[in-house]
């Protein structure tokens, strides 16, 4: 299996542990991710707020590059990239006016996009293309005894729920269970983490983070598993401030791919766990229960 791989800015920056864990895990499963040549920022939610056409052009340049290289499918692990690329594609296919504008802009650099490349999420690829059985087969160090709250966040299931349920998504739950861990009931799994509001308007953004963290603790989780670099950052980086305002709510937050790496016998360093601000000592918990 082969996919074009769109890392996005976060996976090369604050969220590099996501890439560091995802790539070796995919390799282990025999899946090829080929990084898109000279990819550019997807535009995220911020560009949409300033200029929608330019945001679509920005996203479409990536789709055009993927298409030129003969790809039918491109994987975008960051939730914001996943949404924006999908949105650009939707606009492109649904609005002839937008499609015209984008096409003319791409043409100035001799590029073309026909609206064909599909944007996929790693969870989609893992559960639908590879399959849970195959994922299970490679587990050498089952995460027995580890209690995980699966946190999907907003933008991979909303508004385009292409591969999972909008209100009660299940793909990550099944994946984590396949690794031998226990998934706790976590009703906030698709609630908003506050996005960039944690930086711009902390009292609003961080309150959402506090609620998410605290609910996971109350449900008995040892760790929160996420799929998004912004969610991971928000839930991991602001504990001092959260504690000062509402009280402690300390629980490690890791990428699902890091848990996969651990279950596949990779070292904590190999999957980037040293990059966590709230240290995640997951193995001892898993081992003690075994």
């Amino acid at each position: 299996m082969k996919y074009a791989y769109f890392p996005g800015c976060s996976l090369k920056g604050m969220g590099r542990a996501y890439e560091e864990s995802l790539l070796p895990v995919m390799k282990k499963l025999g899946v090829e991710f080929n990084e898109l040549e000279d990819w550019n920022c997807c535009g995220a939610t911020a560009y949409m707020a300033v200029d929608e056409v330019k945001a679509c052009v920005l996203a479409s340049r990536n789709l055009a590059i993927a298409e030129r290289a003969g790809n039918k499918e491109m994987v975008a692990p960051c939730s914001a990239c996943y949404l924006v690329l999908n949105k650009a594609k939707h606009y492109f296919n649904e609005s002839p006016i937008m499609a015209g504008k984008v096409k003319r802009a791409l043409k100035t650099a001799d590029m073309e996009y026909s609206g064909d490349v599909d944007i996929r999420h790693p969870l989609d690829i893992l559960t639908n293309d590879i399959g849970i059985d195959e994922i299970k087969k490679h587990v050498t160090h089952p995460l027995k005894g580890l209690k995980v709250a699966t946190y999907y966040g907003c933008q991979i299931v909303r508004p385009y729920s292409t591969f999972d349920d909008q209100n009660n998504p299940q793909t990550m739950d099944r994946l984590i269970e396949a690794l031998g861990a226990e998934v706790v009931h976590y009703p906030l799994k698709t609630k908003c983490c506050g996005g960039s509001l944690t930086g711009t308007l902390p009292e609003a953004g961080l309150r959402l983070c506090y609620i998410l963290l605290n609910e996971a603790i109350k449900q008995g989780a040892d760790v929160i598993a996420t799929v998004c670099p912004l969610c991971q950052f928000n839930l991991d980086a602001y504990h001092d401030k959260i504690k000062a305002q509402w009280g402690p709510a300390r629980i490690p937050v890791v990428y699902f791919s890091q848990l996969m790496g651990l279950a596949y016998g990779m070292s904590e360093k190999k999957v980037g766990l040293q990059r966590n601000i709230v240290k995640a000592d997951l193995r001892p918990k898993a081992a003690a229960a075994a």
Binding site: C9, S10, K12, G13, M14, N40, C41, G43, A44, A46, Y47, A49, V50, D51, K54, L58, S196, L197, G199, T200, L201
Partner: peptide, 21 residues
């Protein structure tokens, strides 16, 4: 700060093609 962030983000993406957080 929120609209300012949106503008600065766009400017960086516009000028450099990528954003370093």
């Amino acid at each position: 700060p929120i609209p300012v962030l949106a503008k600065e983000f766009s400017k960086m993406a516009h000028d450099l093609g990528r954003v370093t957080e």
